[in-house]
């Protein structure tokens, strides 16, 4: 359907009447994602320096030490969390905009190759299974919290180092990220139409309200947790390779 003459209002890639620097946000977002993804991939492939004293890198948690596995175990450990993020409603928005340029920004023309199918056809229709990756990564949280406890053990006695705080911050950020998930918000009560009918549905309403408060900040938790995962790995890695020394606070 032709809405206006094309010679007056062009269509096609990057065509827009916007005057602001619309390309800055997708560019920065794409660069930040690329930096985090590259670092996490590099660190997961090292298969060394992920452990120092009671500190364990979150990229290697839960720790699997099996020599017979042909790939670095960290890659297997990371598969569910990676798919969880890849199918996350927030990250979808981020990479559809920054990498697929579909659209690059609002009211800005995009590359049009073939007939648009969105998330109705393979492979993107698989995004609909995001909730299963939520279930899978939910199982990681007890391990991550036990890593926090281990990070307070220094040669058999209790203590707190800068690394303890880094690992605690990361586990907290990952917990908030998981509980603010859109699928979680649906599963705890969002799927109900009537909240007031029974005691169970009233409990679901309370859970849904809580999930909604977190969900409104899902983007924040998504970035924070990606940052803390990479920072916690980097901190442990630098300690383990002897580049820096831990600061003992308590």
């Amino acid at each position: 359907m032709v809405a206006v003459p094309a010679e007056v209002r062009p269509r096609g890639f990057a065509a827009t009447e916007r005057r602001d620097a619309w390309w800055v946000a997708p560019l920065l977002q794409g660069l930040m994602l690329a930096v985090f993804i590259s670092y996490a991939t590099w660190a997961a492939l090292q298969n060394a320096n992920y452990h120092w004293g009671g500190y364990l890198s979150p990229l290697y948690s839960p720790l699997i030490t099996a020599d017979w596995i042909p790939v670095p175990p960290s890659l297997l450990i990371l598969l569910p969390p990676v798919l969880f993020r890849a199918t996350c409603y927030y990250y979808r928005k981020a990479y559809y905009r920054s990498y697929f340029l579909d659209p690059p920004a609002c009211a800005v023309g995009e590359l049009r190759a073939g007939r648009y199918r969105g998330e109705t056809a393979f492979p993107l229709v698989l995004q609909n299974l995001h909730r299963y990756l939520f279930y899978a990564t939910f199982l990681y949280l007890p391990f991550l919290w036990s890593d926090v406890v281990h990070a307070t053990r220094f040669g058999g006695s209790f203590g707190i180092g800068l690394g303890t705080l880094v690992i605690l911050a990361n586990t907290t950020a990952l917990t908030f990220y998981s509980f603010s998930c859109h699928s979680a918000r649906h599963l705890v009560g969002g799927g109900l139409d009537c909240f007031s009918r029974t005691a169970a549905s009233r409990a679901c309403h309370a859970a849904w309200k809580g999930a909604s408060v977190l969900n409104a900040r899902h983007m924040l938790f998504a970035w924070m947790s990606f940052f803390t995962v990479c920072s916690a790995d980097l901190y442990v890695r630098l300690l383990a390779s002897g580049v820096i020394h831990d600061v003992r606070l308590l």
């Binding site: 979808r92 928005k93 559809y96 579909d102 009211a107 969105g118 998330e119 109705t120 229709v125």
Partner: peptide, 13 residues
């Protein structure tokens, strides 16, 4: 056709 929406949020903006 809800699957056509790729949740890029321009509508919300």
């Amino acid at each position: 056709g809800i699957g056509f929406c790729n949740i890029t949020k321009c509508c919300t903006e």
